[in-house]
Nucleic acid binder design. Structure first.
Lengths: 222, 222, 222, 222
DNA sequence: AATGAATGAGGATTCATTCAT
DNA sequence: TATGAATGAATCCTCATTCAT
């Protein structure tokens, strides 16, 4: 292969990095993380495998960066949607807002589900620190926004709520993506109990959680 | 290696199977699933590798059986504890009851966290069906028990509650077990937000969930 | 499994041995030698695996005995057919006679094709000696018969002719049983050259061989 | 292991591929196909095992390529020898020509003997197709050459003759390479019948075959 | 004699990562 | 910077055979 034009300026380099991430995201749509090879990503991106390692130090770092990026977009959407609101929100309103933020982001939800078992291994300290630092600041910022719209949410509990939502995403994502034989088993009529539909399950539980928080607040006051 | 005494009777065979599971469980305590080899389990159990395959058809089947077994014991405890109660339970009472049931079962929680990504692959249909069938019947039975102690839980919602709890277990298990560098990162003072302690996090969220359900029931009546 | 009735008398033992061979032969009809396990044979025969080893010392010995048996029946047929003839035979007559002897014996031909690579390994000296001794006496006897019907076959050349026929069987058997992808490749229209039909190919070549021998004899006389 | 110098140009890569094949051929001289491991070939070639898989997709593909290569050289020799001739050839002349072509190629003959049972498995369709296509074109070309030198060979029968020769090679190769105990058995004085010497047996039968074809042609004319 | 539980050797293959060019 | 050839660790599973019961 003829070497691709060189990315010299920082801007060009950022663009190339971005290309790699976009390629990985696209490939991830139809291939599980474990089945997705660096070879495939390089080929899809029209780059040599070695080039990937100029921009990322490991496969995990690629997907961690991808996760970071997609999380960033998710927070952007969420923050924008929240800031559009004028006054206090109802629980239902918030749930709908979350519903909208999840829609069209199946790959983000899948990335979160493997984040702790797959992506946070084999990355340098700096990368992990960067990721967590960013995640923290955005979680806190959005958490604070939530607090301002939900009266029952005491100061500092917005971020904690988001952590709970992470857990729910991971959990329901696992439950909703059975693989191989299990899919077959679950297709039996009497296995309806285990047929989990990600979005409804997630949103239903989120709503209950919010109601619980509201109740708790009221209860505490009394 | 000198052949171990033969398991001839059904009882002896059940015992040997049990030995293998116990060995796997013990080894799993200090080694991640991926790092745990069939070689290791065989050696620990004082058996030849081939013998393992006489009792289980694959590594996954070993751990699926283990999961099944541990889940069974968990349900046993839970059912016993519930049946001991006379009358209606408070939310706090139930949370404590769950707390007691989780205590001393860190490996079950870890097994559940990898159940869907690791264990349900490479297993024959029959094994998967058996597992799910058992899990279903116990989930429904314990779900029904829950319904009888929690006034706000409508008929049929007990099992659904347990599904939510599975999701919470999986999610918080992932959040609470950072690995390698991430552990280091999270040990920084300002990373407190992400330092998740499994039991408290799980129980706290469970309590909120239960309150939400209670609130929802009251709300619906009104 | 309840132990099968014991074979005590020599006759009973011979019968059991025969059962095993018949079972192996039947199983061999639809399964390649390598894919055929001792487990399968034992199960099909309604015996325990260990019992097989009371009658044969190895898998190879089972199939060597099977080959011996089937060869015996083939020689029986051949000899009978030859002895029925009164006078000298034509080449075509002999070819037809061979054709009849091969018909209904696809498994014998397949056994011969793996005899040297598979069956003659891992057998005790005595078994190999017995097999070869029997094969020799029958080859020589039938060879002699052939000599008496084919004028052009000089004394001692009948057995040599049979050896050539063994070689042809092995060779064409290999050519006629492509496996997997190759079968696909050969199904292409332009690959007709390699589509070998065992019986016709074998008999055609045999006829030419006999003509060559006849020609050689005539030529030598002149 | 220190990485071997890199094969960058196509020429260098072809050379490395060639090195691997040569190494395999050399190792094959003293080790049976089944006993020959990829580990051994890699070590002998001074390469990492993974490197082998850069050039061939499986062990079978290595040996199929080897077979293709050796067959190519054999056809080259045969064609050259044939084209050197001016006029019609005698049967004896042709047999000698074949004798010369086989001499020094014991490994090709052994490869042919395992081609159908061993090498044509586990190979991608394209590889099998390529092999068969090449073999077909060379078989037809050399077949046509044979037709031009052997008056009695009707058009189109040259390739068919070569197919018969393949069968003979496979068959006699098997007969001539007894293994283990059988070799011992055959070393007994009275087992002379089964002591097959590859070259003489092959050439003798080939000669008879050619005479048969000649006879058949003459017979048909009359 | 019959059983069947236990043994354990044995090898191809993938793919993230490196580094010479 | 870009390339892509080279590396090599790492592990599951089968199945003929044995031998205690």
């Amino acid at each position: 292969m003829r070497p691709r034009s060189r990315a010299v300026s920082d801007e060009q380099k950022a663009e190339r990095r971005s290309t790699i991430l976009q390629t990985a995201l696209t490939a991830f749509a139809d291939t599980a993380y474990d089945e997705l090879t660096m070879d495939r990503i390089a080929a899809d991106a029209g780059l040599a495998k070695g080039t990937l390692y100029l921009y990322f130090r490991s496969k995990e770092e690629v997907f961690l960066a991808l996760c970071e990026h997609e999380l960033g977009r998710w927070f952007d959407d969420l923050d924008t949607a929240l800031q559009t609101r004028r006054a206090e929100m109802s629980i239902n309103g918030l749930v709908e807002l979350f519903a909208a933020s999840f829609a069209g982001r199946p790959r983000l939800l899948r990335l979160l589900a493997i984040l702790h078992t797959g992506l946070e291994h084999n990355v340098p300290y700096a990368a992990a620190l960067g990721f967590k630092t960013l995640l923290k600041s955005r979680t806190e910022a959005t958490g604070a926004l939530l607090e301002s719209y939900l009266r029952f949410l005491e100061p500092g509990r917005g971020a904690a709520l988001l952590i709970k939502i992470y857990a729910l995403i991971i959990g329901f994502e696992h439950l909703s993506e059975p693989s191989g034989v299990v899919r077959e088993v679950l297709s039996q009529p009497d296995m309806e109990l285990f047929r989990v539909n990600l979005q409804p399950a997630l949103l239903d539980t989120l709503k209950i959680l919010l109601m619980g928080l509201a109740y708790e607040a009221k209860y505490r006051q009394a």
